[in-house]
Simulated assay, not measured.
Amino acid sequence: MASTEPPEAGPPLHRLESVFRVYDVQREGDQLIYYGEPLVPQDRLMKTIWPLFRESGYEATLTTRMGEYVIVAEPVDLGPDGVPWKNVLLFVATVLSTLFAGASWYHVDPIANPLSALQQAWPFTLAVMGVLGTHELGHYVMSRYHGVDATLPYFIPMPTLIGTMGAVIRMKGQMPDREALFDIGVAGPLAGLVATVVVTAIGLTLEPVTASQQLLNGPNVVQVKFGYPPLLKGIAALMGERLTYGDPTKSINPVVIGGWVGMFVTFLNLIPVGQLDGGHIVRAILGERQESIAALVPAVLFGLAAYVFYVLDVSNATVLWVIWGFLSMFFAYVGPATPIDDDELDPRRKLLGVVTFVLGLLCFTPTPIQIIS
């Protein structure tokens, strides 16, 4: 039965009447449903009603049902509800996968010597999980600060050279304004970089790993060569530590690889397109003009791939940048989050955004990794 009486928990209807004429109000479980007619453009409508519903503890969205405009209001539920078992299980699985991957950097067979692998590889796992977790927790903490619903980090275990494909959080709430979009986007890279610098500095002070000559001469040995970005080289130079050794049996401590992972992840996340951190930051700074930059990103990455292949003659890194060229096309198509209040960002945040991108460039190297059989 149609009703124009507001649900007890919702905002008073008279506060909506200037932008949305309500002719039916219903409750479906925890949801409040307002059928009506928009009186202003959608961006102005949402900018007006969204804070009204948030005051009442609801997240409001505008949609259509059977050709009718509807405001759907759901209770705001920030933070995990009960034990986040999926997050916990993925975290444990990623710890195990990074221990397995880390054992190879310490030249230990994790299958033949699982206890030895656990004892030696845990610093590598702590380094990798630390930089990835700090990055995602930066996003999560700032999401909570701005009242945006977000999940805890999901770590992604994967049988790669580092044992993981990273970590992500999922944003479930709408972005209230450009300030929130910027703060949430920039918090991950900056927090992750702090952890990365600390991990790198610690790793550089640790003893290098030594492999036996017999192991190096094995028929199935694969040589992995890392490309060190300017930030990592700079930290090593300031500390007076070495990244390479004249002795082929010696290599950097695997904890430094954890720092390298942090820098590589920071650069990739700051690519200015779509739902990546860089896309959110540029969207907050430039507004809808962000689309012009996003359109150029795939071409830049494909051009980088061509440079690496034809000039540097490194096929492994070429494949990497081609993959990211296609991924950036998808991210550009999806686009970044659109804030409810799309007013201009303040100059202080704009400056911080520029500084963040400069730091991201210091994490870039055209050939992050080479695999030599």
Rank of each mutant, 00 (worst) to 15 (best):
I162G: 08
G203Y: 05
D149K: 09
L45N: 09
K47F: 14
L345C: 04
A236V: 11
Y34F: 13
N113G: 07
P176T: 14
V261E: 13
G10P: 07
P80W: 11
F267W: 09
N217V: 00
I162D: 09
V108T: 10
A60S: 11
S116T: 14
V194W: 00
L39I: 12
S143H: 06
E136Y: 03
A9T: 13
L351D: 01
A180V: 14
P114H: 02
N87P: 02
W122D: 06
T48Y: 10
G138N: 05
A121Q: 07
L312C: 03
Y58C: 11
V355S: 02
E179P: 00
H14T: 08
R21C: 06
L301P: 04
S292F: 05
L118Y: 03
L45I: 15
G166E: 05
K250N: 01
L118E: 02
P157G: 06
G133Q: 02
A180M: 10
G278V: 10
G279F: 14
P41L: 15
F267E: 13
M129F: 02
L13S: 12
T244S: 08
S212F: 01
Q290S: 14
K47H: 13
Q213L: 04
T151I: 05
T356K: 02
L362Y: 12
P254W: 10
I285Y: 05
R242V: 14
T151V: 05
G258S: 01
V354K: 15
G173Y: 05
G246E: 02
A305E: 01
E8C: 03
